[in-house]
């Protein structure tokens, strides 16, 4: 199995005035292709910091992060932007869609930054929107969609660049339990189709639906267990 993510002794120290806050105290793990992982921990466990580092939005204070073998420690801001664009598909708790743009235009957005031509962009966005079950909602704008539909648009947007992995931050945090279940089901299907998916969550019922759970507490991994999602 090819290695997608390799985290080696990641540490992150924030300076809050005089005080040093150790958000990550040496986190190491590996993710191989087509894994379906949740990183779970209570608030203050360092999962947001880990999300930012895994998402190449932030750099660790020390330690190394390799994405498909590429060390991001020395990458410039623009190179990080490129890595985020090509290799990472973000899904946010609050969807973070552009309210004035249609579902189709929202999904096209990362392809614009990738420099894909208009016609190809449109075709690829249509394919993924169909895949998440929104073939008939492409011309709708986010305010005209339900919460579950908005998150599907966001997932389509994350998938459209065919990234190395999808990184979801509390993807069901803003949804009711029924819709949450549908979204988790979609993630399971996408994983079965070959996508590598990481979900950051504080919710054990969400974590249980993935195949592997990394438990985070006080900036360290305390447990790395299998989830129920193995059977999915």
């Amino acid at each position: 199995m090819s290695l997608v993510i390799e985290a080696r002794d990641l540490r992150k120290i924030y300076h809050m005035g005089e005080e040093e806050v150790h958000a990550l105290r040496g986190v190491s793990f590996k993710v191989v292709k087509q894994e379906f992982i949740s990183i779970m921990g209570p608030s203050g466990s360092g999962k947001s910091t880990l999300l930012h580092i895994l998402g190449c939005l932030d750099r660790p204070t020390s330690g190394e992060l390799l994405i498909e073998g590429q060390n991001i420690q020395k990458a410039t801001g623009n190179q990080l932007a490129e890595i985020r664009n090509r290799r990472i598909g973000f899904v946010f708790q609050n969807f973070n869609l552009l309210p004035k743009a249609t579902a189709l235009e929202n999904v096209e957005l990362p392809l614009i930054y990738a420099g894909v031509r208009r016609r190809e962009r449109r075709e690829r966005a249509e394919v993924v929107l169909e895949r998440v079950g929104l073939a008939d909602r492409m011309a709708h704008r986010p305010p005209e969609l339900s919460g579950g539909q908005r998150q599907r648009v966001a997932i389509a947007r994350a998938m459209v660049t065919e990234p190395t992995f999808i990184l979801a931050d509390e993807p069901t945090g803003a949804l009711d339990s029924k819709t949450s279940a549908q979204i988790m089901e979609l993630f399971a299907e996408l994983n079965a189709e070959g996508n590598t998916i990481l979900i950051i969550t504080h919710d054990p019922t969400v974590a249980k639906q993935t195949k592997r759970i990394i438990h985070l507490l006080d900036g360290q991994i305390i447990k790395d267990t299998a989830g129920d999602g193995v059977s999915a």
């Binding site: 939005l57 932007a81 490129e82 985020r84 552009l98 957005l109 930054y113």
Partner: peptide, 12 residues
């Protein structure tokens, strides 16, 4: 929105 665009790969 700017943060989202950056996460999706917008450069400086």
């Amino acid at each position: 929105e700017i943060g989202t665009r950056k996460a999706l790969g917008a450069k400086y």
